[in-house]
């Protein structure tokens, strides 16, 4: 009898202790994330929301007074031919770089996944530009493309041809920006594809070889489907990176000639600091956030679905 009571008491006490620790383990420890939350709210969320407000005004960026003009800046945005030029460039930078980085990055990965000579060194060299500031990478390529004393024109002159001013030519300079951005970040795509390739079991290929499948068919039916997760990651990060492009444009063309190679981010900078058009710049910022959001989310969803199917 006594022992039963004892056990019961013990159990009750234990339950009490358990309840207490369980309860305390459930406590949210909110103070641990408070500093981080405060910083992000203050420096990202608050400005973002405030930007929505400024986009409804005609504020010039420095005066104390301004008027709320409703959606006027937005209707101006849609009528402004510069908007479409800049959006077109931004899409070229985002989608063009993504296309090239992925095709070339995948080819590099396929090559450097073979056991060939100079494999490690080549990987290092391809990856090196990733850690260099995009602004400075732009200057480095500027030495190549510059009209006056650029390496490209040195070759053309030596071959008796006329010098070209590629960076000032609006027909080609946007593509040169895509080219430099691709050159700089193709290493990221390569590394992610290499990791993807190495995670594919050799058994699949052995079985396919026994069935007499051609190299191309092996690539199409084994490599590509199993690489889908890597493709998703690469596409999403390259699209976001390309749509935000800023530094390389500053150092290669400065957005010129005129607005010809301007992206949304350099254009926004220009509107705010050089044209005192803060309300309009904020509107441009809202549009840019929307475009990045829509494109990156649809890319994510589209390729995620492919992954499931594969």
């Amino acid at each position: 009898m006594n022992t039963v009571v004892g056990v019961k008491k013990e159990k009750a006490a234990l339950a009490k202790v358990n309840k207490r620790t369980k309860h305390s383990l459930q406590s949210s420890l909110w103070w641990m994330y408070l500093p981080a939350l405060a910083l992000v709210v203050f420096f990202i969320l608050y400005p973002f929301l405030n930007g929505l407000k400024i986009s409804l005004t005609n504020w010039n960026g420095f005066s104390q007074t301004f008027d709320f003009v409703g959606l006027k800046q937005y209707s101006r945005l849609f009528k402004d031919p510069d908007t479409w030029l800049v959006v077109k460039n931004t899409l070229l930078y985002g989608l063009g770089s993504t296309l090239f980085q992925n095709i070339i990055g995948l080819l590099y990965a396929l090559l450097l996944n073979q056991s060939i000579k100079l494999r490690g060194l080549t990987r290092t060299i391809i990856y090196l530009p990733v850690i260099i500031s995009p602004l400075i990478m732009g200057y480095i390529w500027y030495f190549f493309f510059a009209y006056q004393g650029g390496a490209l024109n040195d070759i053309l002159t030596a071959m008796g041809m006329e010098k070209i001013n590629a960076l000032a030519n609006p027909e080609v300079n946007t593509w040169l920006i895509v080219f430099v951005n691709t050159y700089q970040f193709v290493g990221v795509a390569m590394i992610i594809y290499l990791a993807g390739l190495q995670s594919i079991s050799k058994d699949y290929y052995e079985a396919a070889q026994l069935d007499g499948a051609s190299a191309f068919n092996q690539f199409k039916n084994i490599t590509l489907p199993l690489l889908m997760p890597s493709i998703t990651i690469n596409i999403v990060i390259n699209v976001i990176g390309g749509l935000k492009l800023f530094d390389v444009i500053v150092s290669l063309t400065g957005g010129g000639p005129g607005n010809a190679s301007q992206s949304m981010s350099t254009f926004m900078y220009d509107l705010y600091f050089n044209r005192q058009d803060a309300g309009y710049a904020a509107t441009e910022g809202v549009l840019m956030a929307l475009i990045i959001l829509i494109i990156s989310l649809s890319a994510l969803l589209f390729f995620k679905r492919k992954e499931v199917e594969a």
């Binding site: 990202i44 400005p47 405030n50 407000k53 935000k244 904020a282």
Partner: peptide, 16 residues
Amino acid sequence: VMVIPPLTALVPLYQL
């Protein structure tokens, strides 16, 4: 928040 590029809020951030 990771989806918002901080630069899109350049104008209000500068003001802040």
